[in-house]
């Protein structure tokens, strides 16, 4: 830290930028790093993303993988364990599994529950008496894992139970919306750098250190701009915040920074960068310079 503060500012910033944005871009950090890294680490890090996420079926249908065979992602975050709520539209019982067609009003998906022949036990569906499972059109809550088989998405259910209180359906939809918003806009918190979450904490610490050193010796302009960054973009999406942060930390920002440099620096995909650029252009925080894919911060 002392080195960065005291040393030649430009080089120091450029290097911290690289470290910082990779750390701050949580979930995407490894993608920017190296592919073999993410593949090698898959076995070990698989459980890191195993938090249970409430989703709508439309989100499942829309989910995409970064590269063939990769994890399916919703809002840029890999999803594995999910919970969803929907009505049973069709039941296809086989000897080894039961496939339910589930409809929640936003879309339709197949949910596969493997039949455990040994346990005649305590699952709701077997307790319900019928090996065929639930009655048509009943609402059920499903806990499971989003998987692809023959490039077709389905949910492998760990557990399915009937919903007794209809309000749980509405509750689930609100929860799915809440989680979606928390992921794209960042959790609600105070305006400053710490707001963007765990990974970004390191990031802002580096940057503040760097700017702090600068302010102590000479330039106060940079420090002012630095501290203003988080509050100006706090209403923007997480990608846009990373974009803006990268732009503000780049040297020679007057000429603007080109798309490829931003892709490399932030670990976002080109498409994500363009979307973030649109968002920031719309709010008047950046402007295009020499061409449509080069942006600089609009300072006023």
């Amino acid at each position: 830290m002392a080195n960065y503060g005291g040393g030649s500012g430009g080089g120091g910033y450029a290097r911290t930028t690289t470290y910082g944005t990779q750390g701050g871009d949580d979930g995407g950090g490894f993608v920017g790093g190296s592919q073999q890294g993410s593949q090698g680490g898959q076995g070990g890090s698989k459980y890191d993303n195993d938090s249970l996420r409430p989703v709508t079926i439309k989100q499942l249908v829309d989910s995409k993988e970064d590269y063939p065979g990769g994890d399916l992602k919703i809002d840029g975050l890999g999803v594995t364990q999910i919970t969803l709520v929907g009505q049973v539209r069709a039941i296809n019982a086989q000897t080894t599994n039961i496939t339910y067609r589930i409809d929640d009003g936003t879309g339709v998906t197949d949910v596969k529950k493997w039949v455990d022949a040994g346990a005649g036990g305590d699952d709701d569906e077997s307790a319900g008496g019928a090996s065929k499972g639930f009655a048509l059109d009943t609402y059920v809550r499903i806990f499971g894992r989003l998987t692809t088989f023959n490039s077709k998405k389905h949910v492998g259910a760990h557990f399915i139970r009937a919903i007794d209180d209809f309000n749980e359906v509405n509750y689930h939809l609100l929860e799915a919306a809440y989680v979606h918003l928390a992921l794209i806009k960042g959790p609600q918190a105070g305006g400053d750098g710490s707001a963007t979450g765990g990974g970004a904490g390191d990031d802002s610490m580096f940057v503040d250190g760097g700017y702090g050193g600068g302010a102590a010796t000479t330039g106060t302009g940079g420090a002012g701009g630095g501290s203003a960054v988080p509050s100006r973009v706090s209403a923007c999406s997480r990608n846009a915040q990373n974009f803006y942060k990268f732009l503000s930390e780049s040297v020679g920002g007057g000429e603007g920074v080109q798309l490829n440099a931003i892709v490399a620096g932030t670990g976002l995909s080109a498409r994500e960068v363009l979307t973030a650029a649109d968002e920031l252009l719309g709010t008047g925080l950046i402007y295009t310079t020499i061409d449509d894919e080069t942006w600089a911060i609009l300072d006023y």
């Binding site: 829309d62 009003g105 309000n167 939809l173 609100l174 919306a177 918003l181």
Partner: peptide, 16 residues
């Protein structure tokens, strides 16, 4: 609650 959910589903179309 049901009416509030309808409002939310129209505000956040990407999810619903």
């Amino acid at each position: 609650l049901a009416n509030a959910v309808v409002e939310v589903t129209h505000q956040h179309k990407s999810v619903f």
